[in-house]
């Protein structure tokens, strides 16, 4: 059996919207995107904003349906970590409620068991135990991102898609969150699709990198190889801009 968690084959995607005169127009966003993601691998996806990274994510998660090509999930329930945890955590609920909600929906555990699992996750992602009674707004940015990692983890996924998870955090907190993700990968053989425009972060964390430009993947290689010997002009340009 292969150790693939996700396989994307010849994915093309577009979205429709009404133009100024109310006519429906299609915007082509992704062209012939193909890649594989293995168990325990952290795959980086870099590219400027507007190149279709988010559209790719939304297609992988099944949040939009308009595409051709194949997306094959070898695991159940991929999870997502968003850039701004304040918007991805329900502002009207406490952290404890938010963490418990996936288990309530799953519906197979009774209340004490759910509480126990929540406490376990809180410890695993390195949050203080008393944070369960607080609301997302009352936590720091780093703590919030830990909560959203916790929300993903409590659902026991094999694949986590992280869309710019650390770009809203300052450098020290960034390092802690990256460290957490790395330890999760090592301990549970989780796979990450890690989207970022920050090449330094990608260099620190990822095993392989894909470079995306205008809806196409223009280069795909291991981190060491790509940073040492970029083949595409575009990649060189991104690298130069990062220094």
């Amino acid at each position: 059996m292969s150790d693939l968690v996700l396989e994307v084959k010849n994915l093309s995607a577009w979205y429709r919207e009404a133009d100024a005169r109310g006519r429906r127009v299609s915007h082509h966003v992704l062209y012939d995107v193909s890649f594989e993601l293995h168990r325990g691998e952290i795959l980086g996806l870099v590219g400027e904003s507007g190149t279709g990274k988010t559209t790719l994510v939304r297609n992988i998660l099944g949040l939009v349906e308009t595409h051709t090509g194949e997306i094959i999930h070898y695991t159940k329930r991929p999870q997502m970590i968003f850039q701004d945890p304040l918007s991805s955590l329900n502002p009207a609920r406490t952290v404890g409620w938010i963490l418990e909600e996936p288990l309530r929906i799953y519906g197979k555990y009774d209340a004490p068991e759910r509480k126990r699992r929540v406490a376990e996750i809180v410890e695993l992602v390195g949050l203080p135990a008393d944070c369960v009674t607080r609301r997302p707004r009352e936590l720091s940015g780093g703590q919030r991102q830990r909560v959203s990692i916790g929300v993903a983890l409590i659902q026991k996924p094999s694949l986590i898609i992280a869309d710019e998870p650390v770009s809203a955090l300052d450098v020290t907190i960034q390092r802690q969150i990256l460290e957490l993700m790395r330890s999760l990968r090592d301990e549970y053989r989780l796979s990450f699709l890690f989207i970022s425009h920050d090449l330094n972060v990608v260099y620190q964390l990822c095993d392989r990198v894909m470079v995306m430009k205008k809806g196409r993947i223009v280069e795909q290689n291991t981190v060491a190889e790509l940073f040492a010997h970029p083949r595409e002009e575009y990649t060189k340009m991104l690298l130069a801009a990062a220094d």
Partner: peptide
């Protein structure tokens, strides 16, 4: 369009929920 709603969708919450 808020992310917490997307997050709930990913949890598999029903529309009514």
């Amino acid at each position: 369009s808020q992310n917490y709603v997307k997050s709930a969708q990913l949890m598999g919450a029903s529309t009514a929920r």
